[in-house]
Simulated scan of single mutants.
Amino acid sequence: MHFLIVDDDEASRMVLMAHLKHYGICDICGNGALAVEAVAKSLNSGRPYDVIFMDIVMPGPDGHETLEKIHALEKQAGIAPENRAKAIMVTSMDDEDNTMTALFEDGVSAYLIKPVAKTELVTKLAALGIVEL
Score class of each variant (00 low, 15 high):
I52W: 01
I70A: 00
L125C: 06
H64W: 14
E37P: 02
G129L: 05
A85F: 00
L121C: 05
I79C: 06
L128S: 12
S92K: 09
L34K: 13
E74F: 04
L43D: 02
P59D: 07
I25G: 08
N31C: 13
T66W: 02
V51N: 08
L103Q: 04
M93D: 12
M1Q: 11
D50F: 06
A80N: 13
E37R: 10
A35F: 00
V116F: 07
A110Q: 12
E68A: 15
T123D: 14
T119L: 12
F104C: 10
H71R: 15
M89Y: 15
M54E: 09
L125M: 10
M1C: 08
D62H: 02
K86P: 09
I28N: 12
K69V: 00
D62W: 03
D8E: 09
V51W: 09
D94M: 12
E37W: 02
L121V: 06
E37S: 11
I56P: 01
M14H: 14
L67E: 10
G107C: 04
E65D: 13
G30A: 08
E96V: 15
K118S: 07
I28M: 15
Y111P: 00
E10K: 15
L128P: 09
A18F: 08
G63Y: 02
M17F: 10
P59I: 02
E37K: 13
E10Y: 13
H2T: 11
I113Q: 04
A40I: 01
E68M: 11
A117I: 11
G60A: 05
S12N: 15
V131H: 05
Q76P: 03
T66N: 07
L4I: 05
N83P: 02
K69Q: 12
